[in-house]
Simulated assay, not measured.
Amino acid sequence: MSETDLDKRFQEAFETASQMSQADLPQDTQLRLYAYYKQGSIGQPTNLNSGFDLRNAFKTNAWMQIRNMDSDEAKRLYIELVESLQKK
């Protein structure tokens, strides 16, 4: 089965985002990227009781906020966010 155009664009956006410096991105943007990526690639969060770590708590919270979002919608939003960051 071949990848869809959305999946290819999602993977390309991930590769682009992976090259970006986290120091240059505001924390809220980093959290949105994380949540959209996780929702687009995995779907709804599960097994969230992995101990307390403040950084992971923020990441999990960002993901939980979009837990009912369709995977394809999360991919589109991820792509749009990465593209908007490239223009800056």
Rank of each mutant, 00 (worst) to 15 (best):
M1C: 12
M1V: 13
M1P: 10
S2Y: 06
S2I: 09
S2N: 08
E3T: 06
E3P: 02
D5R: 11
D5S: 11
D5P: 05
D7V: 00
D7K: 06
K8A: 05
K8H: 05
F10H: 01
F10A: 02
F10T: 00
F10W: 05
Q11F: 11
E12Y: 09
E12C: 06
A13T: 02
A13V: 01
A13N: 01
F14W: 14
F14L: 10
E15W: 05
E15Q: 15
T16R: 09
S18A: 12
S18V: 08
Q19L: 11
Q19K: 10
M20Y: 01
M20Q: 03
M20N: 02
S21K: 11
S21Y: 10
A23K: 14
A23H: 13
A23S: 12
D24M: 14
D24Q: 13
L25Y: 01
L25A: 03
P26F: 08
P26C: 07
Q27G: 09
D28N: 04
D28G: 02
D28W: 09
Q30A: 02
L31H: 00
L31E: 00
R32N: 07
Y36W: 05
Y37Q: 05
K38N: 11
Q39R: 10
Q39M: 09
Q39D: 06
Q39A: 05
Q39G: 04
S41L: 15
S41E: 13
S41P: 13
I42E: 14
G43E: 07
G43T: 10
Q44E: 14
Q44V: 13
Q44G: 15
P45R: 07
P45H: 04
P45A: 10
P45G: 06
P45D: 04
T46Q: 13
N47M: 07
N49R: 01
N49A: 01
S50I: 07
G51E: 00
G51V: 00
F52S: 02
F52E: 03
F52R: 02
D53T: 04
L54F: 10
L54N: 12
R55W: 14
N56H: 06
A57F: 11
A57W: 07
F58P: 03
F58L: 14
F58V: 10
F58C: 15
K59A: 06
K59R: 14
K59W: 04
K59I: 05
T60N: 15
T60Q: 12
T60E: 14
N61M: 15
N61L: 15
N61K: 14
A62R: 01
A62W: 00
W63D: 00
W63M: 02
Q65D: 11
Q65M: 09
I66C: 02
I66T: 01
R67G: 08
R67Y: 13
R67I: 10
R67Q: 12
R67A: 15
N68Y: 04
N68H: 08
M69C: 03
M69I: 02
M69D: 01
D70Q: 03
S71T: 08
D72M: 06
D72H: 04
E73L: 07
A74P: 02
A74F: 02
K75C: 09
K75F: 09
R76D: 12
L77M: 12
L77A: 15
Y78R: 08
Y78G: 08
Y78A: 07
Y78Q: 08
I79E: 00
I79M: 06
E80P: 15
E80I: 12
E80H: 11
E80Y: 13
E80F: 11
S84H: 05
L85G: 04
L85K: 06
L85E: 10
L85H: 03
K87M: 14
K88H: 13
